[in-house]
Amino acid sequence: MKILQVIDKLEVGGAERVAVDLCSILYKNNVEVDFLNLLKPSELDQELLEKGIKVHYLNRENKFNPIYLIKMLLLLNQYSIIHVHSRHVLRYVGLTFFLPRIFRKYKVIFHDHFGEIEHDKFISPYLRKCINNCAAYVGVSPSLVSWAKENQLNRRVFLLENIVVEKDAFTKIATESKIVVVGNFRKQKNYEFLLSVLKNLPEPIKIDLYGTIVDRKYYDEIVNLAKSHNLFNRITIKTKEKNISEILLNYKFALHCAASETGPLVAIEYMSKGIPFIMFNTGAVAKVLKENEYDSIMDIFDEEMWSKKIMEVMANSSKQSYLSNQLRILYRNFFSEKIYLEKCLKIYQNIQNS
């Protein structure tokens, strides 16, 4: 069994992080695995290269140029399983499905990371055809899996919830904040509500917000909103930090305000480090935590309720310690590297034997 993980470009993002971690876990456990970027090198490539994982680059400049498609087809045929991450990547790899099966020696697994499935269930006829032609559909959340089954997108539908690889590295930083928020700047992250919560918290409390600027217009809106509410002296926005995992233990509490998520990865990161956090009831992490009686999963966006819940934890060191231990246990039971590897290999074996 020879695996090729495929994505367009390894920029800093959720699907990209999952792809890198999955590839690293497989490689560490002696699975023959390489990586293909459809475009050019980017930030996360180095993590794979440093481990000795082979990374291919298609260096595609025009997706309508058949030369790139032929180059990709020749590469794909060197592997038994092609593990494709994200819908736009499948749309390109799916062009090879128009070729007779005799020209394709590989089987394709589609790994769907779409985070807006609660609000956007539309699927184009072409994407439906691509998914239908895959050997299996893998969703990162129960919502995606239910959607795929309801729409009969594939005969084989699997759930593979996201994880993060536990890291021990720690970097001490100078900060006045005890609360952290992590998430790239896009409307889905609901930072308007974050500012409403901050406004309801006692004056001395400050927040550090880390996020790459994906949507410049949205970033500017949030900055202007913070200024208009006189909150700019209570929130520090950091857009260039690359090693978020290493600095998280500088904080005592975390918030995640997104209205729609599949994971999210950062919540799993908080769990692995035992950092108590509050989040809206969306995605796989919230489902697991709610089912296991973690009491900071919120069903509505009410800034007074959220701020009250935050202060209950921040003002009680015993509760902080209890929640920290609870989160570490739940991380090991549901989101550990070992469990993830077992699930992934089971999917590969199922496809290989089909």
Rank of each mutant, 00 (worst) to 15 (best):
P66R: 09
F98H: 12
R60D: 09
S86Y: 13
L95R: 06
L48D: 05
V138H: 03
L76F: 13
E11G: 14
V33M: 05
I102P: 02
V55K: 08
D112I: 04
Y57V: 03
F122D: 13
G13P: 07
R17E: 08
V84A: 04
K105F: 06
K9P: 12
K105A: 01
V89T: 14
K51I: 09
I25S: 02
V55T: 12
S42K: 06
L75T: 07
L73K: 00
I123W: 08
A15C: 12
I25V: 13
K107N: 10
S24R: 11
K40H: 15
V12L: 12
E47Q: 15
P41M: 03
I67M: 12
A135S: 14
P66K: 08
K71P: 03
S80Y: 14
L127H: 13
N29V: 02
S86W: 10
N30T: 06
L26T: 00
L90Y: 01
P41F: 10
L10G: 02
V108K: 00
L39E: 12
A19Q: 01
I25D: 02
L73H: 09
L36P: 00
P100A: 00
L90W: 04
P125R: 13
D45V: 10
I82W: 01
D21P: 11
K28Y: 07
K105G: 02
K63I: 11
I81R: 02
V89N: 07
K107S: 09
H111D: 03
A136N: 02
D21H: 10
D21I: 05
E11Q: 14
G115Y: 10
N29F: 06
